[in-house]
Simulated assay, not measured.
Amino acid sequence: MWLTCSSIGRKLVMAVTGACLVLFVTFHCLMNGVALFWPMGYNAVCEFLGANWYALVASMGLAALFVIHILYALWLTLQNRRARGNDQYAIAGAAPGVEWSSKNMLVLGIVVVAFLVVHLIQFWAKMQLAEILEEEYMYNGVYVHPADGIAFINIAFSQVWTPIVYIIGFVALWFHMNHGFWSMFQTAGWDNDTWLPRLKSISFWWTSIVVGLFIIQAVVFTVRAM
């Protein structure tokens, strides 16, 4: 199959799944903004996205996007290393005009995945998963409802290490998403001298705004949880 047998096909899969994940990250950022200004509304959104069939279908689709994106990233990395052979380190270190993030996308991706695992443990496992399994989460002897997103935010950010881990994850996400955003358009053929600089500019501002809002939200959540 072309999407698996050719390098261009694999890069296209990476681009499409990456675009979907960028849209999800943007949605997540906006959803967190609701928690800042309208806690009851945020909990209503959490209830809407609980163990309902449509939310479960969306969660499975999102999980599939992450898995496909990660597997294809590893596949392309191994392919590139085999193609370079013994010259891979010399080329990577000496290639002129190559962005740092471009040469370290795999490492950045690993950091983002590690951050994602922490995030899933702190929220998804205690909310949607707990609702599916009909388990009760107790905090200091008090039952916390799976749809009480504000309570889980306060629990998570009352721990001193949480904002540190999140900010490290957000910085890695900025580098990973900034490069991936414009490179997915380059994969699709928008790589001429007119469009590529524009796409890099859009990528920089989109990523900076989204990640900047994430960091602000993390700081505010930490202050409120103290």
Rank of each mutant, 00 (worst) to 15 (best):
M1A: 14
M1Y: 12
C5W: 15
C5M: 15
S7H: 14
I8T: 15
G9P: 00
K11C: 03
K11G: 01
L12S: 05
V13S: 02
A15F: 08
V16A: 05
L21P: 01
L23K: 03
L23P: 02
V25F: 09
V25H: 08
H28V: 04
M31I: 12
N32V: 07
G33N: 04
G33V: 02
F37A: 12
F37C: 12
M40N: 15
G41T: 02
Y42A: 03
N43M: 02
N43I: 01
V45F: 05
C46K: 03
E47C: 15
L49W: 04
L49A: 08
L49T: 06
L49Q: 03
L49N: 06
W53F: 08
A58T: 08
S59F: 13
M60Y: 12
G61V: 05
L62C: 09
A64K: 13
F66E: 06
I68N: 03
I68K: 03
H69S: 04
L76V: 03
Q79Y: 11
N80K: 10
R82Q: 10
A83C: 14
A83H: 14
I91Y: 14
P96I: 04
P96W: 05
E99M: 07
E99D: 13
E99N: 07
M105F: 12
L106P: 04
V111N: 03
V113M: 05
V113P: 00
L116N: 04
V118Y: 15
H119T: 09
H119R: 11
F123T: 06
M127I: 09
Q128D: 08
L129F: 12
L129I: 14
A130P: 03
E134V: 13
E134A: 12
E134C: 13
E134L: 11
E135N: 08
E135Y: 07
E136A: 11
Y137L: 11
M138E: 14
Y139P: 12
N140S: 13
V142C: 11
V142S: 10
Y143E: 15
Y143P: 15
H145G: 07
P146D: 01
P146Y: 01
I150H: 06
I150V: 09
A151I: 04
I153K: 00
I153A: 00
I155C: 06
I155F: 06
A156W: 00
S158I: 04
V160Y: 13
W161Y: 13
P163F: 07
P163H: 07
P163Q: 06
I164P: 01
F175G: 00
H176I: 00
M177L: 14
M177E: 04
N178T: 04
N178V: 03
M184T: 06
A188T: 02
D191N: 13
W195D: 12
L196K: 01
L196V: 00
P197V: 01
R198I: 14
K200A: 03
F204K: 06
F204D: 04
W205L: 09
W205S: 11
W206T: 13
T207V: 05
I209H: 14
V210Y: 07
V210S: 08
V211N: 00
G212K: 07
A218C: 06
V219R: 07
V220R: 01
V220N: 01
F221W: 05
T222H: 02
V223W: 11
R224P: 06
R224M: 08
